[in-house]
Design a protein around this nucleic acid. Structure first.
Lengths: 222, 222
DNA sequence: GCTCGTAGGATTGTCAACAATAGTGGCCAC
DNA sequence: GTGGCCACTATTGTTGACAATCCTACGAGC
């Protein structure tokens, strides 16, 4: 008998913890794109041996956040313009599907959670806290996909958000004005309440297309 | 200067090879669902040490094909009815997006490749080679997503096809008649030639829904 | 009879040493 | 001056051994 409230007590594997730490470091730009990751050094910094560290690295290479060249080393992936487009292609696929699933569930509760994020975003925008607006942007999409309740979509999406954040960091200098982004997200959240699949879908597609355009106007189109 | 024809010469990592081997073994049911994977034994069989083997395992756990319980061991994931549904939710997301991308590319060439697979499927069905029909079914969807040219969709899809195959293996006893499946795939391939996004999209959605229904009529609905 | 505590065995987690490989700089021949 | 050869160094790849943990079985105590 397992009570629903008491989740199973599992200690996640060391490799998972290491991967999680490094993922965060890559996401936040502490490990910049293209940087070589020396195993010995990273192992020292994390206080583990090279064995577990290499195991964690395998997870990141599987996700595509790190590329491994045999006998050369591990490097943080460098996202090209094509990669940026591809990230948003994949995000569109995942988030459109997630939104449709949300429409088949408790839409009202979902809209509540999303609007809460939007309101925080509004506040942050008013306070000129551009970086926090960015965090909440990602959080909005994270919540949206989580609400769909699909483990596989969530897992894929998690990696995609990490890559999205990498793009933003790389182009941090000029990022779009917050005042555009807040209403776009609010529109998506409110559209859910209409329970019209077509409207939600179109809004998401547009939202993604806009994001790519904004990101790539800075980068030379390859 | 790297010529397009001459791909970069890279030797893939040992962990990647091990993961690939095990993925195939899991896909084909040689390592049945729920089975514990003893590290020592597998390492012996593959002729490697436990280190590289564990690295390969991390990739599979990241993909969700294997679950790791600390100090207990690694187990091949057991797919529940909810998992089957989720696999097809994710496949729908990926393949619908892929199809839309294909429509923006060389549709004629794509349809050619897909129809070639369908014709082989027709032949196999006529020969009563049910297992080969199944292989070609997966091959069809693999080609479809490959043609989209999206690395991220392809990577996700690869895992999903492995899981699909696991489902089929688990329920191998009663699998749907080939004569239904061949025309369904042919319809999708031919719809591409119409260059009507709506038609293709609807066909894929239906195809996926049908597949789930077929798979779950055997399993007790949870 | 049931529970608790405890050895035994087996498996996983971690580590440090060894082997193999690629990059680097210098030297020599042409 | 250019190209080829060769040791040297640093890093990665692999291994076997050791430590920690869990499951099982068995016996003592209530």
């Amino acid at each position: 008998m397992t009570r629903p409230t008491l989740g199973r007590l599992v200690q996640e594997s060391t490799a998972a913890i290491i991967a999680s730490r490094l993922r965060k470091a890559i996401r936040d730009g502490e490990l910049p794109a293209g940087a070589q990751l020396g195993e010995a050094q990273l192992a020292r910094e994390l206080g583990v041996s090279r064995g577990p560290l290499r195991e964690g690295m395998q997870r990141l290479t599987q996700e595509g956040l790190v590329i491994s060249i045999r006998n050369r080393g591990l490097f943080v992936v460098e996202l090209t313009a094509d990669d940026v487009r591809d990230v948003y292609v994949a995000r569109s696929a995942v988030e459109r599907a997630a939104a449709q699933l949300v429409l088949q569930r408790d839409v009202a509760a979902a809209a509540d959670q999303l609007l809460a994020v939007v309101n925080e975003m509004r506040q942050a925008a008013d306070d000129q806290r551009s970086d926090r607006v960015g965090d909440l942007d990602l959080e909005f999409h994270n919540v949206l996909v989580s609400l769909a309740g699909s483990p596989r979509l969530s897992r894929t999406h998690h990696t995609l958000l990490t890559e999205t954040r990498m793009c933003i960091n790389a182009l941090q200098t000029t990022y779009p004005p917050p005042d555009e982004r807040v209403p776009e997200h609010r529109a998506i959240a409110e559209a859910l309440l209409l329970v019209d699949p077509g409207v939600v879908d179109r809004l998401i597609v547009t939202h993604m297309a806009d994001a790519v355009t904004r990101l790539l106007t800075v980068v030379p189109p390859s």
